[in-house]
Design a binder for these strands. Structure first.
Lengths: 351, 351
DNA sequence: ATGAAAGCGCTAACAT
DNA sequence: ATGTTAGCGCTTTCAT
């Protein structure tokens, strides 16, 4: 690999001059600049970012820790973060944890060894005040948590109001006349999942309905678990007439179960889910969903993180960005108790 | 950040000794090792990978260049590559090009500046003998191309037989009795897309059918383009009875068009697509698809790349790994000309 | 405006 | 087995 020194030799100038041409921070006479530029292109010189990082003690790299890139929610988030990062000339180093706390620990350790300038984190650890995260922050590496917050840690974050969104969604089912509403929640050790369950319970409580324990199921956010729990719930003797599902993948699993059991949606069971995805438009019935701004999670998170990195001001109070969600009502809940199009239109209008 | 030097001072040994403890390449007396280990954990020392990379002139980082991480095919591929890389202690630096050649150039330049040890590349450039790729290889940075091959470049690769897979798939439609078969191809500047079209034409030719230009449409691998072209084709006066679609996202778009136009599948039009995804199991009708081993593309590619990096032997002949595809026949093509379950079962059996 | 030189944190060759 | 040191490629301060 060509080095600054070789370029300098070829152009007949000092390494300092070449560096000044490359970085553009110090003016260089145009005659010399020309010669340097010529030498650079003749030799195909590419600045060594590793050496620069060592010297400057910053890498212009961001660590990104998510649970699984093959989950569309996270791939959107990563794309958002990458787009924001590249605009500011930062690169993204991404890792999957599969929501396993020990993987998260390892990954953060790797990221620190790599000397990333900051970390975007979708926490896996359910543990209170996780030391690896606290320690990272204490060492001056900015961390922005996305979607979920580690309990007991004061840290910048980008989240949505999961409780409120779940409550709105279940209220929508109640308004349609449903009284027997089940929930497929995510793993309750994750904050988002327990918030979703909380919203579900609040909505039922407001309507004066006692939650039925056998209709509250805990999954793991994967297709397979939605399928399995869906079958379980839908084949039970006294099955709910509506289901609230805490994420997109489990919803897909339930659709599969539905098809196998020859149940119609929304006639036999109405379905409402968290997370909306472009590809869900192709599904029939079109699913009622709480749309989460997956891309924005990443984009805003990266912007906030870079701002923290570059402003150096060790802020005392964390910034908490709250992104809006939107309940998008579609066929999977409509049509159940309604016979005329007018009724539906009216309901769509004020929701 | 704590450095080796500080650890050495604390433990009362030389930096060399600390380095030897950390890397484990040279034996250190257990008494001193203990002291070093103690100092490391007291100070929370994390080796500086940047400095190590500069010194060793290798980063243990792999560059990965794909078109778009939000496309499930590529997110699976990235996950495969990451799993293979981590097993060998390499990290993955991923970039999206959106299939734009100039982005690819920029990204590869960044990767070279980062001094990645090798590059996994899903090529975007349709240009012959693209200089940025040739130059990268010439400089001794191993490149493994995934899924597609840049024209005129001798390079390691992991691909599938797109032509053969497309031909098999169209032959399946022909066997069912279809004579009016359309194709939604990808952007024909991409090798995979033109191979798919080639297979389609071969199958028709063997059956003695002349291709109808108005039934050969070119999309761009996105949901929206499948939707648009699907509507176009399905609303035409003389529409095909079966459709071969070159990727998963466009197939989803067509399903959306189908639902809007109130057409049934497979009764009104049979559908067969490239790419199979776990989440497609939830769709009804279940789509007949050529299953591509997306995860394996990444996994095998990363393994091959690392082998190249570590064996240093500048191989003269490129390795070309061919992964198998599998035609998975489902409801979206079956049931069209068959009235009894027996017929279907029989057909499923010998395909 | 330009050159010389120190030093970022590490590894490995060399000396002991 | 352990300590000492050169140098990886770069930026930047200090002279000039």
């Amino acid at each position: 690999m060509t080095t600054l020194k070789e370029v300098a030799k070829r152009a007949g100038v000092s390494v300092g001059t070449v560096s000044n041409v490359v970085t553009g921070t110090v003016p260089v006479s145009s005659a010399r600049r020309e010669r340097v530029l010529a030498a650079i292109s003749e030799l195909g010189y590419q600045p060594n970012h590793v050496a620069r990082s060592l010297k400057l003690r910053r890498t212009k790299m961001l660590g990104m820790v998510i649970s699984d890139i093959t989950n569309p929610f996270f791939s959107q988030m990563v794309r958002g973060a990458e787009d924001a990062a590249l605009r500011r000339n930062y690169l993204l180093l991404t890792f999957n944890t599969d929501d396993r706390a020990e993987r998260e620990k390892e990954v953060i350790s790797v990221l620190r060894s790599q000397r990333v300038d900051g970390i975007l984190l979708v926490v896996a650890s359910e543990q209170r005040r996780p030391s690896h995260i606290l320690e990272t922050i204490r060492r001056g590496i900015p961390v922005v948590c996305l979607d979920r917050l580690p309990p007991g840690v004061s840290v910048d974050s980008v989240t949505v109001d999961n409780t409120g969104a779940a409550r709105d969604c279940v209220q929508h089912l109640l308004k349609l006349g449903h009284r027997k509403i089940g929930i497929i929640a995510g793993s309750l050790s994750l904050q988002t999942a327990s918030e979703g369950l909380q919203g579900y319970k609040e909505a039922l409580a407001e309507a004066g309905i006692d939650p039925r324990p056998e209709w509250i199921l805990q999954g793991n956010f994967r297709i397979e678990s939605g399928y399995r729990l869906g079958r379980q719930l839908l084949t039970s003797l006294d099955r709910p007439t509506a289901l609230f599902i805490s994420n997109n993948l489990m919803a897909l699993g339930i659709l599969k179960a539905l098809a196998e059991l020859d149940l119609r949606c929304p006639e036999d069971v109405a379905l409402a889910t968290f997370d909306e995805l472009p590809l869900m438009e192709a599904f029939r019935p079109h699913l009622t969903a709480v749309a989460q701004p997956a891309y924005s999670f990443g984009y805003s998170g990266a912007e906030l993180l870079i701002q923290r990195i570059e402003s150096k001001t060790h802020a005392k109070t964390p910034v908490a960005i709250r992104l809006p969600t939107e309940l998008k009502i579609k066929e999977s809940t409509l049509g159940y108790r309604f016979s005329t199009r007018q009724d539906c239109a009216c309901l769509l209008g004020n929701s």
